[in-house]
């Protein structure tokens, strides 16, 4: 049986209430025995360490996410200025699973499909779902096969270092290399 759990890690936010109040009760009780000053100093030391570690970890994750994700969105904004409202774009980039984010920045309807074969299958079932443009990151090694297939079938142009294939054009053999 496949096992999945319908809870996100941030759903444990509600636990902050019992955890913090119980810690407060502990501090108040221990202070009765060893004195408020001792408890205050100990709590300040331990919580400072936790604070530094937690904020450092959050900052490191943020830096990692910055490196990972800014370039595709810059392309997204540039694409957004060139697209007509309602055009459907097929994307293949490291952010493929974060659909709402890309939609929020592009403000265009688009559908994500990982390769040309599934694209063709979708289009066969839903002619209205036809993809119009496909931007590809040349540095994305996982997209090289898709790039070869697309190069053989569609014209392309470069937008901010990304190859954007025009899927509206009929397949007419290999396209010239991007300028």
């Amino acid at each position: 049986m496949s096992e999945a759990v319908y809870i996100h890690v941030y759903c444990t936010f509600g636990w902050i209430l019992p955890v913090c109040l119980a810690l407060g009760a502990l501090a108040q009780s221990v202070a009765k025995v060893v004195g408020e000053l001792t408890v205050g100093a100990l709590a300040a030391l331990l919580l400072s360490l936790l604070f530094v570690a937690a904020s450092g970890h959050a900052r490191a994750r943020l830096e990692a996410s910055r490196r990972q994700s800014l370039a595709p969105i810059q392309v997204g904004k540039k694409l957004s200025s060139e697209l007509r409202q309602g055009e459907i774009v097929m994307l293949r980039n490291p952010l493929i699973q974060f659909v709402p984010q890309l939609k929020y920045y592009l403000e265009h309807d688009f559908i994500l499909r990982p390769n040309i074969q599934t694209t063709a299958a979708v289009e066969a079932q839903c002619p209205a779902c036809r993809f119009l443009l496909m931007p590809l990151d040349p540095k994305d090694r996982a997209g090289q096969q898709l790039e070869r297939e697309a190069s053989a079938r569609y014209p392309r142009k470069m937008i901010e270092g990304y190859q954007v294939f025009d899927l509206r054009a009929a397949s007419r053999g290999p396209s010239p290399p991007p300028r």
Partner: peptide, 28 residues
């Protein structure tokens, strides 16, 4: 229990979940 309240407040500000998801836009 002002000392307990201060400890609870400091704990809340120090927990990883607060740093990770505190600024997240969510109703929780």
């Amino acid at each position: 229990a002002p000392l307990g309240g201060l400890a609870a407040a400091a704990a809340a500000a120090s927990l990883p979940i607060m740093h990770e998801f505190g600024p997240m836009t969510l109703g929780q």
